Simulated assay, not measured.
Amino acid sequence: MKNPSTYQAPTYLSSFITYDTSRYFQEMIAIEWRGQIQSSTQGRRFKIYYCGEYAADINLLVDQDDFPVVVYAEDVETQERILLFDYAKHGYNAMFCDEYEEEVLQAREGKVQELILNGENVFEVLVYAYHNIDYDDEMEEFLNEENEIELLSGEIITENELKRNGFDFFGMDVIDSNGNRQTLVEFELA
Rank of each mutant, 00 (worst) to 15 (best):
L115Q: 05
Y128L: 09
L126R: 07
Q106A: 08
E140N: 09
E146P: 00
E103I: 12
G154P: 05
M139F: 15
D137F: 12
N121H: 12
G110W: 07
E109M: 11
L126C: 07
E109V: 08
I133K: 09
Y135L: 01
I116T: 15
I149N: 03
E138L: 15
E99C: 02
N121T: 14
I149Y: 07
G119M: 00
Q106F: 04
E99I: 06
D136P: 06
D136K: 12
N147R: 11
N132R: 13
I116F: 03
N118E: 14
I149T: 08
E138M: 11
R108S: 07
N132H: 14
V127I: 09
V127H: 08
E114W: 06
E145I: 10
V122H: 14
D136V: 10
N147K: 13
N132E: 03
I149W: 13
Y135C: 05
N118K: 11
N147H: 14
N147V: 02
E141C: 12
E103V: 01
V104Q: 08
E146A: 14
L117G: 04
E120D: 12
E138D: 12
K111P: 00
E120N: 15
Y130R: 15
I116M: 09
E145S: 13
D134V: 02
I116E: 10
I133L: 10
E114H: 04
G110K: 04
T158C: 07
G154K: 01
I133W: 07
E102L: 07
I149V: 12
F142S: 06
Q113H: 02
A129L: 02
N118G: 11
M139T: 11
M139L: 15
V112P: 05
I156F: 08
E138Y: 11
L105D: 02
T158W: 08
L126V: 10
Y130E: 11
E101Y: 13
L143D: 00
E148A: 11
K111L: 14
L152F: 11
I149R: 00
V127R: 04
N121M: 02
E114L: 11
E120P: 00
V125D: 03
S153Q: 06
F142I: 06
E114G: 05
S153T: 13
M139W: 11
N147W: 11
D134H: 05
E146W: 04
L152H: 08
N144R: 07
A107K: 09
V125T: 09
A129Q: 07
E102R: 05
I156C: 00
L126S: 04
Y128N: 10
E141N: 15
L151F: 12
Q106G: 00
Y128R: 14
E138C: 13
D98T: 13
R108C: 10
E148F: 06
F142V: 08
Y130P: 05
Q106W: 04
I157G: 01
